[in-house]
Amino acid sequence: MDTKSIVYIALFAALTAALGIVPPIPTGFGINITAQSLGVMLAGSIAGAKRGGLAMVLFLALIAIGLPLLAGGRGGIAALAGPWAGYVLAWPLCSFIIGWLIGRKPGANVWLLGAFIAFGGIVVMHTFGILWYAFASQIPLGVAFINNSIFIPGDLVKVAIAAVLTHGLRRAFPTL
């Protein structure tokens, strides 16, 4: 792996960590809506499939070794084993899928970019999140699915931001 890839992997892991500083919005369910999944989307859409996926693996490793980098200052292995861990554990796959889809359509317009980002950042992430939540807390999938819908509006906003940013950056850096 070349040096540039290593630096990009580190950069997007750090970006996801830095987005944890943005104050989370409490939902009343005990878990909060955070800006961090924007980092997941951007890692895939800007750094690409392999670099983006590895950036998220690195981020999860930093959490696991005990750094409080998740929004609200949470960290440690406990944060990766809690009832909502499915979302976080799916991040490498989400970034990879976003990067892979975008890599196949280099000339994508902002709407198509948004669709790709929404697929990886909402469909894939929420599927894993709901499954783990239903398993860990032993509740029916339907209830988990309904509880999950609280995250959809915020995630749509993040998809829009990620799509506009990616579109602009691809014009500013044609080599991305």
Partner: peptide
């Protein structure tokens, strides 16, 4: 060694990004 470099770079980037 490259994994080590990525970890230290990431930790350094967080305050830089802020």
């Amino acid at each position: 060694a490259k994994v080590g470099l990525a970890i230290s770079l990431a930790l350094r980037f967080i305050p830089v990004l802020a």
